[in-house]
Design a protein around this nucleic acid. Structure first.
Lengths: 118, 118
DNA sequence: CGTAGATATTGATGGTTGTCGATATTCGAG
DNA sequence: CTCGAATATCGACAACCATCAATATCTACG
């Protein structure tokens, strides 16, 4: 099951609609979900997540990510930090290189909360 | 099917994972998806969407929404406009009152793109 | 018509964010 | 140990955003 902190109860995941559509979410839940959406709500970060998720082995080296964009290296590093800080990306250093991997459960939890399986 | 502009192809919707996780999304697709996520990436707007979606008849009067928050009326009006401009909320005026309704297809499309049915 | 209530718009303000160049850090190679 | 390459951090700046008070707009009702 999910390891994220969005607290999907069994009742919620089994219901017909997403929690968000079934009953008003609490202010607390909104405060917890919003930062994740904020982290995703940027074209560059969306593509970063997508590139990493679609990579062989589910992870990608920062060196490759830098080449995929027409942005400075610090900017990419910044976006990766935002995604990492919010728990969407795992980070692992191997030698001089850093690899990021998408935490799929977090992503699917967000999706389920927003409009899941409806 | 969906009437939103996110262009989910049949291939994508039928696949095992969300498009975002299966292959790198295009810059164009990212630019189209990001504004929707941005609109949702605010605690107040998340609750607004949730309250409206969970209301009887799938719509809610602005007068009720104002009471649900500890914010000024213009602020609520602003958030509703953001959600409406991005196509997440439908707006219908009936007499002096204005009712907003959630466009569920848009919401579920976003969810499917992000991490749908995985 | 004119007034009252519901909603939207405007203008201002403090806070946040995306981006960059410069610099720091970290690590393997020699 | 030193050098070079990979990544992160810092400081700055312009653009954007959430919020409010004040005001405008719209509509039903006398």
């Amino acid at each position: 099951m999910s390891k994220s902190q969005l607290t999907l109860t069994p009742v919620e995941t089994a219901a017909c609609c997403s929690p968000l559509m079934r009953e008003p979410i609490s202010a607390d839940q909104a405060e917890r979900l919003a930062p994740l959406l904020k982290a995703l709500a940027d074209p560059v970060r969306l593509r970063l997540v997508s590139i990493v998720a679609a990579s062989e082995g589910g992870e990608a080296c920062v060196c490759d990510l830098n080449d995929a964009f027409d942005l400075s290296q610090p900017t990419i590093s910044h976006h990766l930090k935002v995604l990492h800080d919010v728990g969407l990306l795992d980070r692992s250093k191997r030698g001089v290189w850093v690899y990021y991997a998408v935490r799929r459960e977090v992503l699917t939890d967000v999706a389920t909360l927003i409009g899941g399986n409806a």
